[in-house]
């Protein structure tokens, strides 16, 4: 193997530093014993303990988790239905308009989405709270799900569904027994995408949340305006740990699946 040039090593180091140094500092200072964020006063886990006693943060975390779970599930159901209509529905009236509109939220500024939803909720006299955040998150994340799922459906061999029908399965059974298992990876990654989008959304939640419901990003944002506390660092570190674990697990699973498939195909070819 060729040894990398100095230029490559330097640019790689600078790039990684640019991306990860802020997070590294955040993680290191979450274990700081002192109250001041920027002065090191010895290793301690006291801020993690403080965090667990902070009701406001725990409430916000619980709200965020519920919102993310419900909205990503709703978005997945609606997004899969939309993808099916777009890819499988044939040429129905207004198909082009519909397919254009489903992608609009992808490019719409979040401020506009948030503001328009806020105006809608006021107009119909809906009390703002967890329900309105869920609705808002479902609205903007379902188009991400439908993009991911329709890509998978477009590459789907149509004759698989025809074969199921031919063998006596009703259209509903065909969907449950053949279509869904085959597009499942796309549905799951669509759900994960919707879940993450909901988890870290600040702008839309700020517009649609009421006084009764505050999500974690909103809570962090408002606390930081009063000054960064080591507690926030601890909270952020936990979030980073959770996300990193999730990413590593999912990439390990898909890597194993690919390796197994390649091995099977080599064996079948022999």
């Amino acid at each position: 193997m060729r040894s990398p040039s100095w230029f490559n090593v330097t640019s790689l180091a600078l790039g990684f530093a640019f991306l990860y140094l802020p997070m590294l500092i955040l993680i290191v200072y979450s274990f700081n014993g002192g109250r001041l964020v920027t002065v090191w006063a010895g290793f301690s886990t006291r801020w993690y303990a403080e965090l667990l006693r902070n009701e406001a943060f725990l409430d916000a975390a619980w709200v965020t988790l519920r919102v993310a779970l419900i909205s990503s599930t709703l978005a997945t159901i609606l997004g899969v239905m939309a993808a099916l209509a777009l890819v499988r529905g044939g040429r129905f009236l207004g198909r082009t308009l519909f397919s254009g509109m489903i992608y609009a939220p992808l490019v719409m500024p979040e401020v506009i989405t948030g503001l328009s939803l806020l105006l809608l909720f006021i107009a119909i006299g809906m009390d703002r709270g967890i329900g309105t955040i869920v609705l808002a998150h479902t609205t903007f994340s379902m188009c991400y799900v439908s993009v991911v799922v329709s890509a998978r459906l477009a590459s789907f061999d149509r004759s698989l569904e025809e074969a199921a029908l031919d063998l006596g399965a009703s259209p509903a059974e065909t969907f449950r027994l053949v279509t869904l298992p085959i597009i499942a990876p796309a549905v799951i990654s669509g759900w994960l995408l919707a879940f993450t989008l909901s988890l870290d959304d600040l702008v839309i939640a700020s517009f649609t949340a009421g006084p009764s419901a505050t999500t974690l990003p909103m809570k962090i944002f408002s606390s930081v305006r009063l000054g960064v506390t080591p507690e926030i660092n601890a909270l952020s570190t936990i979030l980073i740990a959770v996300v990193t674990t999730g990413v590593i697990i999912s990439s390990l699973i898909s890597k194993q699946a690919i390796a197994r498939k390649a091995r099977d195909e080599r064996r079948a070819a022999r």
Binding site: E162, A163, L165, D166, I182
Partner: peptide
């Protein structure tokens, strides 16, 4: 409809259910 016919078909692509 196809699922109510006494007819079965072998597809050119075989259309085996991969799962």
């Amino acid at each position: 409809p196809p699922n109510k016919r006494p007819v079965n078909m072998m597809f050119q692509s075989y259309a085996l259910f991969p799962h």
